[in-house]
Design a protein around this nucleic acid. Sequence first.
DNA 1: ATGGTCGCGAGGCGA
Length: 267
Amino acid sequence: MKIATWNVNSLRARADRVEDWLRRSDVDVLAIQETKCKDENFPWELFENNDYEVAHFGFSQWNGVAIASRVGLDDVERTFVDQPAFGKGGKDPVQEARAIGATCGGVRIWSLYVPNGRALDDEHMPYKLSWLDTLNRQAAGWLGQNPEAQVALMGDFNIAPRDEDVWDIDFFHENNLTHVSAPERAVFEAFLETGFVDVVRPHTDTPKTYTYWDYTQLRFPKNEGMRIDFTLASPALAARVVDAQIDREERKGKGASDHVPVIVELD
DNA sequence: ATGGTCGCGAGGCGA
């Protein structure tokens, strides 16, 4: 079985590329982030025409997550339990469409779009940290005491866990940028302490391997990217991983997302 | 060549 995650930065704008990629990649499950649409605008036929079932969670032009599967799509959950909502400037917190879970081919898949902290002193940063901390505590419960639990946390974590996961760590620190701060890295590390495993890195550990390149500043042609899209697998699922790829080709050409698909192959 | 933001939605925000 082959599973993948991809922040598409608008599914409607990316429909042709997503369809071409689905056919070419031969994945069984695709976790999608940033659909940027509501159900009424969702391209259902794109998936139907290619024999995928799909579940979507999106209610505005922002965020939006989905899971497409051709190996079953059961027990769909939209938002995880106690998922923090965001209240701007003390206003009533509003839940955001950032998490959808489903069981596909015996694996509990979560498609996750972690909040962007925006700046180290922005009110979105504590939101991001508590969002991840809560997810980690829920995910620990999904593992429970079951050593055979099959769980995959897939998506855009908006964190670069290691210095080599950004093109120039000094640039990030000198400019007080997010994604690389100690609190962000600590909350990412906590998933590993829970028992989850980054199953892509061991298969893609060559230098300057990234999953995202900003549209501005010629970041892609200069390969100034970031590794911020991950698949964190439960121990039993991690044991089944035989290969993984980051599809850098998908960042090329006109009409590319700023993120590329990340694929995990299971036995 | 991979090339100098993009997407949504109709002004400015989010990333």
